[in-house]
Amino acid sequence: MARDYLYFPGCSLKATGVAYEESMQELFRILEMPLRELEDWNCCGATSYMAIDEESAFQLSARNLSLARQNGNSDLMAPCAACYLVLRKTQDYVKKYPRVHRHVAASLESAGLPMMDGVKVRHPLEVLYNDVGLEKLESKVVRRWRGGPVACYYGCQAVRPFTEVDRAHNPIRMDEIMKAVGVPTVDYSLKTKCCGGALTGTIHDVGVRLNYLLLKEAARKGANAIVTLCPLCQFNLDAYQVEIQKESGESFDTPILYFTQVLGWAFGADPRKLGFKRGIAGRKLLKQWFAEHAEVEQYV
């Protein structure tokens, strides 16, 4: 009865966010939910396209949705929050604005692609929450988490208009999933505040400052790690900790994990397949935790 999940990796999962893809694949394999990558997908357009040409942004997403449709699959999973939002926004605007609909339909036609109706864009967090459920996730746990409390960071675009990952104000599903697999979470009041997105690459100081606030609040709340669901959030929080330390004089060495890594770990996956070695910050801490777990601890 294994159902296969079509997924749209997006550019980040093939580069800076490669650990996300690796751990997701391993996690879904353990859960016996085979993953299939959408063939010949193109970039989602992210936020930059909207700023240049909104109609092209819709065209880009439309091709991906149409390819999914051609695949005969009604669900398309997009792990990156930006891809997820852009795909859903495209669907929403195509539905809401006849002019956008006509343009997208004409564009797909001239590319020889079918109209993209009926594809449901989903996020792996919500797939795990709805299709698997907390109870089943809990039943799969074979390793005890020794990393102490974590801060669940939802970031922005996954929990905003057009989305169905969780409610926009005070989302809790990631916290619930973490608790279900035995990972304590802290009350993280900045859980939906933006990491700055591409700002770290452009107006660097401002972007880094936002990440400083996020790291500081997590530390203040006693979190040993931050768990994310978006490759850009993970990158921003992970890559600039040394710089933040220099600027602020406060020391940070916080592992920034994907929720898929934590779940994979709890379900007994080979840590090497979860991409833990791809993190920049908190490597010492991670090594410590995993050293204790050299022998996998089985629950009887």
């Binding site: 580069a15 800076t16 193109n42 065209q59 880009l60 091709r63 001239s110 590319a111 791809r278």
Partner: peptide
Amino acid sequence: TGRLSLRSERIRGVHQLRRELAT
């Protein structure tokens, strides 16, 4: 950490995409 890919990927359907974008 193996997160920086120097390869610039190109999709197979790039012409299809260009036709679409040219609408």
